[in-house]
Amino acid sequence: MPEDDRKDATRDAVEREIDAALKEQVTGLPPDQAEALREKIRLRVRKEVERDLLARTASERRAAARLAREERKKEKQAEEGELFQRFNRNFRFQHVVMFTAVILLIITGMPLKFPNFILSRFVINFWGGIQNSTIVHRIGAGMLIYFMIHHFLYTVLTRDGRRDFWLLIPKPGDAKDIVHNIRHFLGKVPDKPRFGRFSYIEKFDYWAVYWGCIIMIGSGLFLWFESIVLRFLPKYALDVAHEMHSDEAMLATLAIVIWHFYNVHFNPDRFPGTLLWWHGQLSEHEMKEEHPLEYEEILARRAGESAEVTNR
């Protein structure tokens, strides 16, 4: 078979090249390690070459590439450990709706607070003028109101929602965690505090959003339906709502851009950000690192379950 001959010839050539390259690499290593390394690399390269030779059409090549990706993923998973589902699909959907709404609200709202800032005019003109940007702001507002209702129903109606709500309520232990964490930052304590499902940072974020949503939606609805509001309340009530809307917007934006972005993006552990918001999974490694108490609880529950199964 001339086809097979050609393949063998290629394979031999590749192997010779690998040997030549490896000779330089493994000179410093002890012989058994060098042999192991050589064997490992040779296996991988041969696999690649064979797959490339076998795959003739584009679709075959794509399938091969997918297989390779999955294999790499499996390898990585073995290093990182099991994946834990931290946020369910419903919760991730809420987060996406909320951050889309908040981004729209910030970029259409901030120019109104700082009309003389050089970018403000650009941003307003990007939407086609103030008439359009106010409509976009109301679309964002509608999304945020929807998110608030959705989250309220989620908290009341679903098992996960109720569990998370109780876990998010601040407890005296959180104050201890704050002190412990600051002492850890200053180098007084070697280990960082062991957090449960929600650390004090996440609890703060959650209740900050709660507070922000109530203030912003409340005052925003006042400003949106000013004629109806003024039927029942004097004009200064509207001025108070305007002031609250403007000031709380500033606080929320600063908290998001500085605090939340640091915790999930600029923090060296996370930079430039993880896909937790998309797939909702944490690896075993991350669980042990960031939520050790929850991790232990899950393991204990599993042990209990398996014990039940074996006892039965």
Binding site: I182, H184, F185, L186, G187, E243, M244, D247, E248, M250, L251, L254, A255, I258, W259, Y262, N267, P268
Partner: peptide
Amino acid sequence: FFKWLTIGTMLALIAHIFLDMYGR
């Protein structure tokens, strides 16, 4: 009220961030 709320909150949060970076 909002002025001092913003100043207080942001000072606390920024202090936390800098302490974290100092520890790192």
